[in-house]
Design a protein around this nucleic acid. Structure first.
Lengths: 245, 245
DNA sequence: TGACATAGTGTCTTATTGACACTATCTTAG
DNA sequence: CTAAGATAGTGTCAATAAGACACTATGTCA
């Protein structure tokens, strides 16, 4: 290195291919609700490495088309599900020398929440098969590629933790829903029942929902429909939800 | 690409230098407490790009010596402060095409909490100057390189948020401390005072501290000294701490 | 028109926090 | 030796919010 190089000179002579740097990718756990269970999307890899194995959707940053990391994640999600405005949250970044046979590798994991009625599965070039699997069944039924089992675990744990003190589950429902449906959603993720009155107080007092004016009719008293107010999709409650004592 | 390549063949022919991939680095906000203020460590860059500008300590993953991403962060911290077992938490990963003049770049940010008495500043090759700055003064006093201002902001916000529902601040104190000192620490980060009895109940009921048996003497009633129990350094309280009404 | 099913509420009990005055125990000055 | 000053630490009650659960409300359907 010369002694008095300007930044311009430095950048002119800089060539990223001269360095040994890690691979960087994005992986996603896309969650939805179906049959009273949280499901996650898995893809069968159509490319080396780990060809033919099940994995979380993901891939490399396309530095020519992606402007930001989040765009990479959005793109992957859109490719697989057609959904383009989900709840998307970055979970963690895992990097080490052994997780990918190609060498030192870093992956940024995200989870997405989408409503079960609002997507259509897409089949794209990079995967020949796509399935929704109940999260609780993944480890017993599938052997995921790389460290995707752990990444999925992290994402699911983040979700389950945040159910205790945020309004995240609203993102798993269609735009309009009843309080009972929302309560059921919380209960599924929490894995335990919650008391009706407390639940309603909690949600209504938080002022994150608004009535749509219409109702959901069944063979009983019609339930008011609600939608989420603009900033309600990620409200933080001042205390954790608790199950029955 | 051949049609029926084995994974072995694929890996043999794989050369990372054939691809356009982003740069990946680690940046850290190292926090400590001093003069009743949270301080963060800044370094003056001794290398291009942004030579001579102040920045958060950080750098590239050394794929030959670092085994994991966290090790990269640990190594950076050790180089600057000599501390090697701090509280370390990954905050976020930022990646886009414009944050670094060398091209598409991804950085994983961490924050570390260290006790003010437990480190010695080191000067190493990659930086000629190092300073501790009160976090609240950074934006008015320094112009940080790259997007480090935003990264610092994220880290500090994470810390301030977590003070409300975790025991994190214990990591800013020496191994032994009094409850009053701990309360003061919470108050500094929260930016408001908390009620003594409530605070003590909260901490003691959580069962994360143990008495050391000795006391801190002053010109008044001696205060019991406590240390943190093994898993107390990151306890989650079931509800947020609240200020006075 | 009455049974049923689910939506939604009234209200009491219980748990936890906030407020704040009080007691405890040290040092230091005289 | 004692009283003043200072900070540590506690007792206790009021205020707040959640849990429990019975109750009412409003629709469908036979």
């Amino acid at each position: 290195m010369s002694e008095q190089q300007t930044e311009q000179e430095f950048l002119a002579s800089y060539n990223i291919h001269d360095y040994d740097i890690p691979l960087t990718s994005v992986d996603m756990a896309i969650f939805t609700l179906h049959d009273e269970q949280v499901h996650v999307l898995l893809v069968k890899r159509a490319q080396h490495p780990a060809l033919g194995q099940w994995a979380l959707p993901g891939g490399f940053i396309d530095i020519s088309s992606d402007k930001t990391l989040e765009q990479t994640a959005q793109r992957k999600l859109k490719e697989k599900t057609g959904v383009d405005t989900p709840y998307l949250e970055q979970v963690a970044t895992t990097g080490n020398h052994h997780r990918d046979p190609r060498g030192w590798s870093v992956t940024v994991s995200y989870f997405a929440l989408i409503a079960h009625n609002e997507f259509q599965l897409q089949k794209d070039a990079s995967s020949d098969q796509v399935v929704w699997v109940p999260v609780d069944d993944v480890s017993s039924t599938y052997t995921l590629a790389f460290d995707h089992q752990e990444i999925l675990q992290q994402c699911y744990e983040r979700l389950r933790n945040k159910v205790q003190y945020t309004s995240l589950p609203v993102n798993l429902l269609p735009q309009e829903f009843t309080l009972t449906e929302l309560q059921k959603t919380f209960e599924i993720i929490l894995g335990k029942s919650v008391e009706k009155k407390s639940f309603r107080r909690r949600l209504l007092d938080a002022d994150i929902l608004e009535e749509t004016g219409s109702t959901r009719k069944g063979s009983n008293r019609p339930a008011k429909l609600y939608r989420v107010k603009p900033e309600g999709e990620s409200h933080f409650f001042p205390r954790n939800i608790e199950g029955p004592r």
